[in-house]
Design a protein around this nucleic acid. Structure first.
Lengths: 151, 151
DNA sequence: TCAGTATTGAGAATCACAATCACTTGATTG
DNA sequence: CAATCAAGTGATTGTGATTCTCAATACTGA
């Protein structure tokens, strides 16, 4: 898990700076969201986050998530059921891909080795250029059945 | 666009068989959905489909989409906003990947060359196995800005 | 400290989508 | 060909996630 390697204090400082650039305050509520995201590590739904931070009202939580997403601190994805899931942005955690369990819906972060990543990068770039796109990024989603769902 | 190469008549026949295997009728409403999907080619939302088929009530459209998805004729994805988008399943159109425009949200189907696809396949398989997953498939999503959104 | 702006909390509103239910259609059987 | 009966449809209502509104509050800079 990429987030293992990040010290919370440094991360909060990075986030604070990022927000400051955009003149957005790093309030307690927002800090709490980031802290919880670090603790959980993977992409989590608003409902799950709320379960861990029941003191923060849902509406405020959603707003914090929106603000942090807009500021590039969080990234918003949607799982198989369309539920929104948030995770710390890649500039905080490192570039990674997703393993999705088709059975339980869990999403796991995985990193590719450098060589593999470079290959993928090249593939994506070629693909985009051929279609007249200006490349911004890529994400490989691998679908399968996770260990605990297999037996 | 992969779907260019498929004759509607054959495709309908394939779909009919697929549904028949599961004792599901290929009704007019369902056929209309498939026809519209072929015409549009890419992943489309229920709302967009409804715009093209305003004679079919939304509730019926949703049901048809659910049935066709369940039967494996359509595949359901979720776009950046969490909106569900449907497209013809890969066994009908061929395996492909997605180019997403970060600006207008449009999703385009793209095919990778055989060698590239094989490489990606290997990557995905290794990745999944290392994590104890039983691989089922993969999808590469390349994000960028499309031609018309660039200027 | 004061004014002005950003943020929050509580609740209502919205939106995509699923479920219900009475009615229709269409396949099957005699 | 008509009777039968399950599958499908349309209209409507329900639901759950997310967003909006607005009054109350907290910051920030002068």
């Amino acid at each position: 898990m990429p987030t293992d390697t990040i010290k919370p204090a440094e991360l909060h400082e990075s986030v604070r700076r990022r927000l400051a650039e955009q003149e957005i305050r790093y309030t307690n509520g927002r800090r709490a969201v980031v802290t919880t995201m670090v603790r959980l590590g993977g992409p989590e739904s608003a409902a799950e986050l709320h379960r861990r931070m029941s003191n923060i009202p849902l509406s405020s939580l959603y707003r914090s998530l929106t603000v942090l997403d807009g500021a590039g601190v969080l990234e918003k994805h949607h799982d198989v059921d369309g539920l929104a899931r948030f995770e710390l942005a890649e500039w905080l955690t490192g570039h990674h891909h997703h393993l999705v369990c088709l059975d339980c819906g869990m999403v796991e972060d995985v990193e590719l080795g450098d060589e593999a990543e470079a290959t993928l990068d090249r593939l994506a770039a070629r693909l985009a250029e051929d279609a007249g796109y200006e490349v911004a990024g890529h994400n490989l989603e691998v679908e399968g059945v996770c260990g605990s769902c297999q037996q």
